[in-house]
Nucleic acid binder design. Structure first.
Lengths: 203, 203
DNA sequence: GTCTATAGGAAGATAGAC
DNA sequence: GTCTATCTTCCTATAGAC
Protein backbone atom coordinates (compact mmCIF):
# COMPACT_ATOMS: atom_id res chain seq x y z
CA UNK A 1 0.00 0.00 0.00
CA UNK A 2 2.95 2.21 0.73
CA UNK A 3 4.19 1.68 -2.80
CA UNK A 4 0.77 2.37 -4.28
CA UNK A 5 0.40 5.73 -2.64
CA UNK A 6 3.89 6.56 -3.79
CA UNK A 7 3.02 5.84 -7.42
CA UNK A 8 -0.09 7.98 -7.31
CA UNK A 9 1.81 10.85 -5.75
CA UNK A 10 4.67 10.45 -8.19
CA UNK A 11 2.23 10.72 -11.09
CA UNK A 12 0.65 13.75 -9.49
CA UNK A 13 4.04 15.42 -9.04
CA UNK A 14 5.23 14.99 -12.61
CA UNK A 15 1.76 15.71 -14.01
CA UNK A 16 1.75 18.97 -12.08
CA UNK A 17 5.06 19.89 -13.66
CA UNK A 18 3.79 19.07 -17.16
CA UNK A 19 0.43 20.87 -16.79
CA UNK A 20 2.14 23.94 -15.32
CA UNK A 21 4.54 24.13 -18.24
CA UNK A 22 2.27 23.16 -21.13
CA UNK A 23 -1.25 24.00 -19.98
CA UNK A 24 -4.20 21.64 -20.38
CA UNK A 25 -4.32 21.51 -24.17
CA UNK A 26 -0.53 21.27 -24.48
CA UNK A 27 -0.08 18.53 -21.88
CA UNK A 28 0.22 14.92 -23.07
CA UNK A 29 -0.65 11.84 -21.03
CA UNK A 30 2.20 9.99 -22.76
CA UNK A 31 4.74 12.56 -21.56
CA UNK A 32 3.43 12.35 -18.00
CA UNK A 33 3.62 8.55 -18.11
CA UNK A 34 7.18 8.65 -19.49
CA UNK A 35 8.37 11.11 -16.85
CA UNK A 36 6.74 9.09 -14.07
CA UNK A 37 8.18 5.92 -15.62
CA UNK A 38 4.82 4.21 -15.64
CA UNK A 39 2.44 3.21 -18.42
CA UNK A 40 -0.37 5.41 -19.69
CA UNK A 41 -2.81 2.85 -18.32
CA UNK A 42 -1.57 3.62 -14.81
CA UNK A 43 -2.61 7.23 -15.25
CA UNK A 44 -6.15 6.17 -16.05
CA UNK A 45 -6.13 3.65 -13.25
CA UNK A 46 -5.40 6.37 -10.68
CA UNK A 47 -7.14 9.40 -12.18
CA UNK A 48 -9.70 8.05 -14.70
CA UNK A 49 -9.14 10.74 -17.33
CA UNK A 50 -6.92 13.62 -18.37
CA UNK A 51 -9.67 16.04 -17.37
CA UNK A 52 -9.95 14.63 -13.84
CA UNK A 53 -6.18 14.56 -13.37
CA UNK A 54 -6.08 18.16 -14.51
CA UNK A 55 -8.86 19.20 -12.13
CA UNK A 56 -7.03 17.72 -9.15
CA UNK A 57 -3.92 19.65 -10.12
CA UNK A 58 -5.71 22.94 -10.84
CA UNK A 59 -7.46 22.86 -7.46
CA UNK A 60 -4.24 21.91 -5.65
CA UNK A 61 -2.39 24.72 -7.39
CA UNK A 62 -5.07 27.24 -6.56
CA UNK A 63 -5.11 26.17 -2.93
CA UNK A 64 -1.31 26.28 -2.70
CA UNK A 65 -1.28 29.77 -4.10
CA UNK A 66 -3.97 30.88 -1.68
CA UNK A 67 -2.27 29.29 1.30
CA UNK A 68 1.14 30.76 0.45
CA UNK A 69 -0.58 34.08 0.29
CA UNK A 70 -2.37 33.55 3.57
CA UNK A 71 0.77 32.41 5.33
CA UNK A 72 2.79 35.50 4.63
CA UNK A 73 4.28 36.36 7.97
CA UNK A 74 2.51 39.35 9.42
CA UNK A 75 5.05 40.91 11.69
CA UNK A 76 4.04 43.69 13.99
CA UNK A 77 5.50 46.72 12.27
CA UNK A 78 4.61 50.34 11.54
CA UNK A 79 2.28 50.34 8.53
CA UNK A 80 4.78 51.61 5.95
CA UNK A 81 7.41 49.13 7.12
CA UNK A 82 4.81 46.42 6.95
CA UNK A 83 3.97 47.39 3.37
CA UNK A 84 7.69 47.27 2.51
CA UNK A 85 7.81 43.84 4.05
CA UNK A 86 4.82 42.74 2.00
CA UNK A 87 6.39 43.99 -1.21
CA UNK A 88 9.51 41.95 -0.44
CA UNK A 89 7.42 38.89 0.37
CA UNK A 90 5.22 39.20 -2.72
CA UNK A 91 8.24 39.67 -4.96
CA UNK A 92 10.04 36.64 -3.54
CA UNK A 93 6.79 34.72 -3.88
CA UNK A 94 6.37 35.68 -7.54
CA UNK A 95 9.96 34.79 -8.39
CA UNK A 96 9.51 31.35 -6.85
CA UNK A 97 5.99 30.63 -8.13
CA UNK A 98 5.88 32.40 -11.51
CA UNK A 99 5.09 29.17 -13.34
CA UNK A 100 2.11 28.37 -11.11
CA UNK A 101 0.85 31.94 -11.33
CA UNK A 102 0.94 31.83 -15.14
CA UNK A 103 -0.77 28.44 -15.12
CA UNK A 104 -3.58 29.63 -12.85
CA UNK A 105 -4.09 32.84 -14.81
CA UNK A 106 -4.33 30.99 -18.12
CA UNK A 107 -6.58 28.13 -16.96
CA UNK A 108 -8.82 29.73 -14.37
CA UNK A 109 -11.23 31.34 -16.85
CA UNK A 110 -12.40 28.07 -18.39
CA UNK A 111 -12.68 26.39 -14.98
CA UNK A 112 -14.28 29.06 -12.83
CA UNK A 113 -17.32 26.95 -11.80
CA UNK A 114 -15.02 24.12 -10.66
CA UNK A 115 -12.97 26.51 -8.54
CA UNK A 116 -15.98 28.29 -7.11
CA UNK A 117 -17.60 25.06 -5.93
CA UNK A 118 -14.35 23.91 -4.28
CA UNK A 119 -13.02 27.18 -2.91
CA UNK A 120 -15.15 26.99 0.19
CA UNK A 121 -12.95 24.21 1.49
CA UNK A 122 -10.26 26.80 1.98
CA UNK A 123 -10.98 28.58 5.21
CA UNK A 124 -11.30 32.26 4.50
CA UNK A 125 -12.70 33.46 7.78
CA UNK A 126 -10.68 36.39 9.02
CA UNK A 127 -8.23 35.79 6.18
CA UNK A 128 -4.92 37.53 5.65
CA UNK A 129 -6.53 39.69 2.99
CA UNK A 130 -9.32 40.82 5.29
CA UNK A 131 -6.86 41.56 8.08
CA UNK A 132 -4.81 43.68 5.67
CA UNK A 133 -7.91 45.63 4.63
CA UNK A 134 -8.79 46.23 8.27
CA UNK A 135 -5.30 47.35 9.08
CA UNK A 136 -5.19 49.73 6.10
CA UNK A 137 -8.53 51.16 7.23
CA UNK A 138 -7.36 51.64 10.81
CA UNK A 139 -4.10 53.33 9.81
CA UNK A 140 -5.92 55.66 7.44
CA UNK A 141 -8.38 56.67 10.11
CA UNK A 142 -5.49 57.22 12.51
CA UNK A 143 -4.03 59.59 9.92
CA UNK A 144 -0.83 57.55 9.50
CA UNK A 145 -1.27 57.17 5.73
CA UNK A 146 -3.35 58.87 3.05
CA UNK A 147 -6.95 57.78 2.49
CA UNK A 148 -7.42 55.30 -0.34
CA UNK A 149 -9.78 52.40 -0.95
CA UNK A 150 -7.91 49.47 0.70
CA UNK A 151 -8.91 46.98 -1.99
CA UNK A 152 -7.50 49.19 -4.71
CA UNK A 153 -4.37 49.81 -2.68
CA UNK A 154 -3.70 46.09 -2.34
CA UNK A 155 -4.58 45.51 -6.00
CA UNK A 156 -2.12 48.23 -6.98
CA UNK A 157 0.70 46.73 -4.93
CA UNK A 158 0.10 43.19 -6.15
CA UNK A 159 -0.20 44.36 -9.77
CA UNK A 160 3.15 46.15 -9.61
CA UNK A 161 4.80 43.11 -8.01
CA UNK A 162 3.43 40.42 -10.32
CA UNK A 163 2.72 41.88 -13.76
CA UNK A 164 6.30 42.71 -14.82
CA UNK A 165 7.28 39.07 -14.30
CA UNK A 166 4.37 37.85 -16.41
CA UNK A 167 5.12 40.37 -19.14
CA UNK A 168 8.90 39.96 -18.91
CA UNK A 169 9.58 39.27 -22.61
CA UNK A 170 7.26 42.07 -23.74
CA UNK A 171 8.86 44.58 -21.38
CA UNK A 172 12.19 43.35 -22.68
CA UNK A 173 11.25 44.15 -26.28
CA UNK A 174 9.58 47.48 -25.51
CA UNK A 175 12.66 48.73 -23.66
CA UNK A 176 15.12 47.04 -26.03
CA UNK A 177 16.66 45.30 -23.02
CA UNK A 178 19.21 42.50 -23.26
CA UNK A 179 18.68 39.41 -21.11
CA UNK A 180 21.00 40.84 -18.45
CA UNK A 181 19.26 44.19 -18.55
CA UNK A 182 15.73 42.84 -18.11
CA UNK A 183 16.88 40.66 -15.21
CA UNK A 184 18.59 43.61 -13.55
CA UNK A 185 15.45 45.68 -14.15
CA UNK A 186 13.26 43.08 -12.45
CA UNK A 187 15.74 42.74 -9.59
CA UNK A 188 15.69 46.44 -8.82
CA UNK A 189 11.91 46.80 -9.02
CA UNK A 190 11.24 46.16 -5.34
CA UNK A 191 13.20 49.29 -4.46
CA UNK A 192 11.14 51.42 -6.84
CA UNK A 193 7.80 49.90 -5.91
CA UNK A 194 8.50 50.69 -2.25
CA UNK A 195 9.51 54.24 -3.11
CA UNK A 196 6.40 54.66 -5.25
CA UNK A 197 3.99 53.30 -2.63
CA UNK A 198 5.64 55.35 0.12
CA UNK A 199 5.24 58.52 -1.92
CA UNK A 200 1.62 57.64 -2.64
CA UNK A 201 0.75 56.97 1.00
CA UNK A 202 2.88 59.30 3.09
CA UNK A 203 0.95 62.19 4.59
CA UNK B 1 -7.63 37.43 -57.96
CA UNK B 2 -9.80 39.67 -55.85
CA UNK B 3 -11.67 36.64 -54.58
CA UNK B 4 -8.48 34.80 -53.75
CA UNK B 5 -7.10 37.54 -51.58
CA UNK B 6 -10.46 37.69 -49.86
CA UNK B 7 -10.34 33.98 -48.98
CA UNK B 8 -6.84 34.25 -47.57
CA UNK B 9 -7.81 37.23 -45.48
CA UNK B 10 -11.02 35.57 -44.33
CA UNK B 11 -9.04 32.56 -43.14
CA UNK B 12 -6.59 34.85 -41.40
CA UNK B 13 -9.41 36.70 -39.66
CA UNK B 14 -11.17 33.65 -38.28
CA UNK B 15 -7.88 31.90 -37.50
CA UNK B 16 -6.84 34.94 -35.47
CA UNK B 17 -10.07 34.66 -33.50
CA UNK B 18 -9.52 30.95 -32.84
CA UNK B 19 -5.84 31.25 -31.88
CA UNK B 20 -6.57 34.20 -29.58
CA UNK B 21 -9.27 32.23 -27.78
CA UNK B 22 -7.71 28.76 -27.67
CA UNK B 23 -3.96 29.34 -27.92
CA UNK B 24 -1.69 27.36 -30.23
CA UNK B 25 -2.15 23.94 -28.65
CA UNK B 26 -5.89 24.40 -28.23
CA UNK B 27 -6.60 25.66 -31.74
CA UNK B 28 -7.88 23.20 -34.35
CA UNK B 29 -7.44 23.56 -38.10
CA UNK B 30 -10.87 21.96 -38.56
CA UNK B 31 -12.55 24.66 -36.48
CA UNK B 32 -10.81 27.40 -38.44
CA UNK B 33 -11.89 25.80 -41.73
CA UNK B 34 -15.49 25.46 -40.53
CA UNK B 35 -15.70 29.08 -39.36
CA UNK B 36 -14.16 30.33 -42.61
CA UNK B 37 -16.50 28.03 -44.54
CA UNK B 38 -13.67 26.51 -46.53
CA UNK B 39 -12.03 23.10 -46.49
CA UNK B 40 -9.04 22.22 -44.35
CA UNK B 41 -7.04 21.80 -47.55
CA UNK B 42 -7.53 25.50 -48.28
CA UNK B 43 -5.78 26.36 -45.04
CA UNK B 44 -2.73 24.41 -46.10
CA UNK B 45 -2.89 25.84 -49.59
CA UNK B 46 -2.60 29.40 -48.22
CA UNK B 47 -0.46 28.92 -45.12
CA UNK B 48 1.34 25.56 -45.55
CA UNK B 49 1.02 24.46 -41.93
CA UNK B 50 -0.60 25.22 -38.60
CA UNK B 51 2.73 26.48 -37.28
CA UNK B 52 3.19 28.94 -40.14
CA UNK B 53 -0.39 30.19 -39.89
CA UNK B 54 0.17 30.68 -36.18
CA UNK B 55 3.41 32.57 -36.71
CA UNK B 56 1.75 35.02 -39.11
CA UNK B 57 -0.97 35.66 -36.53
CA UNK B 58 1.40 35.97 -33.57
CA UNK B 59 3.55 38.52 -35.40
CA UNK B 60 0.49 40.46 -36.61
CA UNK B 61 -0.94 40.49 -33.09
CA UNK B 62 2.33 41.66 -31.60
CA UNK B 63 2.63 44.41 -34.20
CA UNK B 64 -0.98 45.51 -33.68
CA UNK B 65 -0.46 45.74 -29.95
CA UNK B 66 2.72 47.73 -30.45
CA UNK B 67 1.14 50.07 -32.95
CA UNK B 68 -1.96 50.68 -30.84
CA UNK B 69 0.41 51.56 -28.05
CA UNK B 70 2.47 53.84 -30.25
CA UNK B 71 -0.56 55.60 -31.64
CA UNK B 72 -1.94 56.73 -28.31
CA UNK B 73 -2.75 60.37 -28.88
CA UNK B 74 -0.17 62.52 -27.18
CA UNK B 75 -2.00 65.71 -26.46
CA UNK B 76 -0.08 68.69 -25.18
CA UNK B 77 -1.07 68.75 -21.53
CA UNK B 78 0.49 69.39 -18.12
CA UNK B 79 2.32 66.24 -17.07
CA UNK B 80 -0.16 65.05 -14.44
CA UNK B 81 -3.08 65.60 -16.80
CA UNK B 82 -1.18 63.75 -19.48
CA UNK B 83 -0.65 60.82 -17.12
CA UNK B 84 -4.38 60.82 -16.31
CA UNK B 85 -5.07 60.77 -20.02
CA UNK B 86 -2.68 57.84 -20.47
CA UNK B 87 -4.36 55.88 -17.68
CA UNK B 88 -7.72 56.39 -19.40
CA UNK B 89 -6.28 55.37 -22.76
CA UNK B 90 -4.49 52.30 -21.38
CA UNK B 91 -7.62 51.18 -19.55
CA UNK B 92 -9.82 51.56 -22.61
CA UNK B 93 -7.14 49.74 -24.58
CA UNK B 94 -7.02 46.83 -22.15
CA UNK B 95 -10.79 46.49 -22.06
CA UNK B 96 -10.89 46.30 -25.86
CA UNK B 97 -7.83 44.11 -26.38
CA UNK B 98 -7.80 41.88 -23.32
CA UNK B 99 -7.99 38.73 -25.45
CA UNK B 100 -4.98 39.72 -27.56
CA UNK B 101 -3.02 40.72 -24.49
CA UNK B 102 -3.65 37.34 -22.86
CA UNK B 103 -2.76 35.57 -26.10
CA UNK B 104 0.54 37.44 -26.44
CA UNK B 105 1.47 36.93 -22.81
CA UNK B 106 0.83 33.20 -22.99
CA UNK B 107 2.52 32.53 -26.35
CA UNK B 108 5.42 34.99 -26.42
CA UNK B 109 7.73 32.93 -24.20
CA UNK B 110 7.92 29.95 -26.54
CA UNK B 111 8.30 32.20 -29.60
CA UNK B 112 10.73 34.85 -28.45
CA UNK B 113 13.34 34.20 -31.20
CA UNK B 114 10.65 34.53 -33.88
CA UNK B 115 9.51 37.86 -32.45
CA UNK B 116 13.01 39.18 -31.95
CA UNK B 117 14.01 38.51 -35.54
CA UNK B 118 10.87 40.20 -36.86
CA UNK B 119 10.50 43.07 -34.42
CA UNK B 120 12.94 45.25 -36.32
CA UNK B 121 10.33 45.71 -39.04
CA UNK B 122 8.39 47.81 -36.59
CA UNK B 123 9.90 51.25 -36.61
CA UNK B 124 10.91 52.12 -33.09
CA UNK B 125 12.96 55.25 -33.73
CA UNK B 126 11.81 58.01 -31.40
CA UNK B 127 8.97 55.78 -30.26
CA UNK B 128 6.10 56.75 -28.03
CA UNK B 129 7.77 54.95 -25.14
CA UNK B 130 11.02 56.85 -25.57
CA UNK B 131 9.17 60.15 -25.84
CA UNK B 132 7.33 59.36 -22.62
CA UNK B 133 10.61 58.57 -20.85
CA UNK B 134 12.09 61.85 -22.08
CA UNK B 135 9.06 63.81 -20.98
CA UNK B 136 9.08 62.18 -17.52
CA UNK B 137 12.78 63.05 -17.24
CA UNK B 138 12.23 66.66 -18.28
CA UNK B 139 9.32 67.21 -15.90
CA UNK B 140 11.27 65.71 -13.02
CA UNK B 141 14.23 67.96 -13.68
CA UNK B 142 11.87 70.93 -13.89
CA UNK B 143 10.63 69.95 -10.43
CA UNK B 144 7.05 69.43 -11.58
CA UNK B 145 6.88 65.85 -10.26
CA UNK B 146 8.90 63.75 -7.86
CA UNK B 147 12.05 62.01 -9.05
CA UNK B 148 11.59 58.36 -10.01
CA UNK B 149 13.15 56.08 -12.60
CA UNK B 150 10.92 56.72 -15.67
CA UNK B 151 10.97 53.09 -16.80
CA UNK B 152 9.73 51.93 -13.42
CA UNK B 153 7.12 54.67 -13.37
CA UNK B 154 5.70 53.57 -16.71
CA UNK B 155 5.93 49.89 -15.69
CA UNK B 156 4.02 50.70 -12.49
CA UNK B 157 1.25 52.50 -14.37
CA UNK B 158 0.88 49.81 -17.02
CA UNK B 159 0.92 47.04 -14.40
CA UNK B 160 -1.88 48.67 -12.44
CA UNK B 161 -3.94 49.17 -15.61
CA UNK B 162 -3.52 45.71 -17.12
CA UNK B 163 -2.97 43.15 -14.37
CA UNK B 164 -6.39 43.34 -12.67
CA UNK B 165 -8.08 42.50 -15.98
CA UNK B 166 -5.83 39.49 -16.50
CA UNK B 167 -6.38 38.30 -12.94
CA UNK B 168 -10.07 39.16 -12.89
CA UNK B 169 -11.39 35.77 -11.72
CA UNK B 170 -8.69 35.42 -9.07
CA UNK B 171 -9.36 38.91 -7.69
CA UNK B 172 -13.02 37.99 -7.72
CA UNK B 173 -12.42 34.94 -5.52
CA UNK B 174 -9.97 36.65 -3.17
CA UNK B 175 -12.42 39.46 -2.48
CA UNK B 176 -15.50 37.23 -2.57
CA UNK B 177 -16.96 39.48 -5.26
CA UNK B 178 -20.07 38.67 -7.27
CA UNK B 179 -19.94 39.15 -11.04
CA UNK B 180 -21.49 42.58 -10.68
CA UNK B 181 -19.10 43.54 -7.91
CA UNK B 182 -15.93 42.56 -9.78
CA UNK B 183 -17.12 44.46 -12.85
CA UNK B 184 -17.90 47.54 -10.77
CA UNK B 185 -14.50 47.21 -9.10
CA UNK B 186 -12.72 47.11 -12.46
CA UNK B 187 -14.79 50.03 -13.73
CA UNK B 188 -13.82 52.26 -10.83
CA UNK B 189 -10.14 51.38 -10.92
CA UNK B 190 -9.13 54.22 -13.26
CA UNK B 191 -10.22 56.73 -10.64
CA UNK B 192 -8.08 55.08 -7.95
CA UNK B 193 -5.06 54.53 -10.18
CA UNK B 194 -5.07 58.23 -11.03
CA UNK B 195 -5.38 59.20 -7.38
CA UNK B 196 -2.57 56.80 -6.46
CA UNK B 197 -0.20 58.02 -9.18
CA UNK B 198 -0.96 61.66 -8.39
CA UNK B 199 -0.15 61.11 -4.73
CA UNK B 200 3.05 59.32 -5.67
CA UNK B 201 4.24 62.04 -8.03
CA UNK B 202 2.99 65.34 -6.65
CA UNK B 203 5.67 67.45 -5.05
C1' DG C 1 -8.04 28.13 -56.34
C1' DT C 2 -11.03 24.86 -54.06
C1' DC C 3 -12.71 20.59 -53.29
C1' DT C 4 -13.00 15.21 -51.71
C1' DA C 5 -10.71 11.59 -49.98
C1' DT C 6 -7.39 9.73 -47.38
C1' DA C 7 -2.82 8.99 -45.57
C1' DG C 8 -0.22 8.75 -41.36
C1' DG C 9 0.25 9.31 -36.93
C1' DA C 10 -0.73 10.80 -32.21
C1' DA C 11 -3.98 11.35 -28.67
C1' DG C 12 -7.01 9.63 -24.84
C1' DA C 13 -9.02 5.67 -23.17
C1' DT C 14 -10.04 0.54 -22.29
C1' DA C 15 -9.67 -4.74 -22.11
C1' DG C 16 -7.55 -8.25 -20.19
C1' DA C 17 -3.24 -10.87 -18.83
C1' DC C 18 -0.26 -11.27 -14.93
C1' DG D 1 -1.43 -2.55 -8.99
C1' DT D 2 0.96 -2.57 -13.37
C1' DC D 3 1.65 -4.03 -17.71
C1' DT D 4 0.93 -4.96 -23.16
C1' DA D 5 -1.95 -4.56 -26.75
C1' DT D 6 -5.43 -2.39 -28.97
C1' DC D 7 -9.58 0.57 -29.93
C1' DT D 8 -11.44 4.81 -31.41
C1' DT D 9 -11.19 9.21 -32.31
C1' DC D 10 -9.04 13.24 -33.64
C1' DC D 11 -5.48 15.94 -35.82
C1' DT D 12 -2.28 17.69 -39.33
C1' DA D 13 -1.10 17.23 -43.77
C1' DT D 14 -1.13 15.67 -48.69
C1' DA D 15 -2.62 13.63 -53.25
C1' DG D 16 -5.24 14.29 -56.92
C1' DA D 17 -9.75 15.48 -59.30
C1' DC D 18 -12.11 19.46 -61.11
Amino acid sequence: MGEKLKTKELILTVATEVFHNKGYTGARMQEIADLAQVNKAALHYYFNSKQQLFEVILLNSFKNLFISFENLAVKKLPILDKIDFLIDEYSAFVRKKIQIIKFILSEVDKNLPLIQTNIKMISLENSFIDRMYNEFDREMKLGNIKMINPRHLLTNIISMCIFPFIAKPVIMEINKFSTDEINAFLDEREKYIKQFVHNALKI
